[in-house]
Design a protein around this nucleic acid. Structure first.
Lengths: 258, 258
DNA sequence: ATGTTTTGGTTCATTATTTGAACCATTGGT
DNA sequence: ACCAATGGTTCAAATAATGAACCAAAACAT
């Protein structure tokens, strides 16, 4: 594994619940020698990608990400376009709309918008990590990812997060076939009880799946009319979002959507 | 120079006006061999830090920055806090408020807020690059940066952007001494004609200066009352912003501010 | 107060990775 | 049709990275 890849992979150990990581802890998480981790983190720190904070001089993500994210948004206003799409989706459906991006073998929530039409709603958190096998967003992504990646994900230990979570790889493959046929994933109580979600994949300029757009609603509100509205609005919004951010739909998606 | 540093330094060549860079172009900009650049960019691409787009398969910043910026904001909501501070500053002063972060030897605009109290205003652009020697933000940063960095900046070729731009290193050092005494930088027509700006430095958890908070107004509106209001509001907002994002003021700043 | 464990950090002989001149196929310009 | 520039690849030689062993300080347990 290249040195640059090693350094960048250290960044993936940061999460919402683990925003500060010490040197020894990072060594344990990554399996790399403490001296190696120290050197890699020092190079990341010199360029502002991590910084030290906290009492024990733990590391956290640095301000370079804010800067470069702003630069990336100036070039491809993906988050801005996503916020517009999410707002419209939330208004049109009355439910929570969110977008997440692929990070390794998980999804990271980029943004979400709540609807205020009801007294209850499905809640999200910034940068929340979503598993691939147990969410509609994850299934949408897997449905349009290359076979090697799907194999890798399905051969890992799949955690049952609710009584409903599907963890049988053969059954998941069948679900993925359906996702490909529908160009949409649907999930009921797989990740959280009483939550019914729909998701569609998003693609980049090279037709690679990079994330998903999703709508989450309480099961109790999901009648046929709501489901039809969600499916129609989500389809339109996801296709528009991929195109608006300079992405292209893969052939397999186009064929199934026809 | 370490391999990781080399790879990350490639990212700094992207700018608002140069969001797509081809392999050969990046080789010329960085002075690195084309094969080396290709390998470094490939490793960055594998982790989502750059992606290929455009007709000639040029590279641009990737979606990983959006994801990790969201994660960083979840941990230290600096941009969120900054937007609140900028909004208040713009309202309190009636002028354009903005925040920029240090990137190498320049500043990168992170966010800005306009006031709508007047028919005219100083305008900004997302991710706009600001020079250090010719802006109040830059002078604020230099005033509270280590001597080696100041030497490096002042020994480079300093561009005269207006007839007013100070480019004499000895004079600039005198200006920096004044910035340190005032804990604030002030600049009239140095970067743009007819624009009067004030800026204060922002610090990180290790007391390093990482950027500046600034207010820009047309020269024609800058009377004593406005100047006093700007200075008071800016001082309060900058100190609060450093503290709210877990930063600490360096000793030199505390002594001068007393 | 003392001893133990764990931490962040450093060193340098050894090992692994990176480098870049030379090359190739394709695209763009004249 | 020819030339220039592009993105991309190869692999012997060169350079950087590695990690076991070590250190001082801090945290923890008694």
């Amino acid at each position: 594994m290249g040195t640059v890849s090693k350094a960048l992979s250290l960044l993936t150990y940061f999460s919402r619940s683990r925003s500060l990581i010490g040197l020894s802890e990072m060594s344990r998480l990554s399996g790399l020698n403490k001296a190696t981790v120290h050197r890699l983190l020092t190079e990341l720190q010199d360029q502002g990608f991590v910084e030290q904070a906290g009492t024990g001089r733990e590391y956290r993500l640095g301000v370079a990400f804010l800067r470069l994210a702003a630069l990336r948004e100036a070039a491809v206003p993906m988050r801005d376009i996503a916020m517009t799409a999410l707002t419209k989706l939330a208004e049109a459906t009355g439910e929570t709309a969110h977008i997440s991006l692929l990070q390794g073998s998980t999804l990271s929530t980029l943004a979400y918008v709540y609807s205020h039409q009801h007294g209850t709603r499905v809640t999200m958190e910034d940068a929340e990590v979503l598993p691939l096998h147990a969410t509609s967003s994850g299934l949408a992504v897997l449905g349009f990812s290359d076979a090697g990646f799907v194999d890798e994900v399905l051969s890992a230990r799949l955690e049952a997060l609710t009584a409903n979570t599907e963890t049988n790889p053969a059954k998941l493959r069948k679900i993925l076939a359906q996702v490909r046929a529908d160009c949409m994933a649907e999930s009921v109580g797989n990740f959280e009880d009483d939550v019914h979600t729909h998701a569609m994949p998003l693609f980049d300029a090279r037709q690679s799946c990079i994330g998903a757009l999703a709508i989450a609603a309480p099961v109790s509100r999901m009648d046929d009319a709501l489901r039809t509205a969600i499916r129609a609005n989500l389809r339109q919004a996801a296709l528009r979002l991929t195109r608006a951010t300079g992405g292209f739909l893969p052939q397999s998606f186009n064929e199934a959507a026809a």
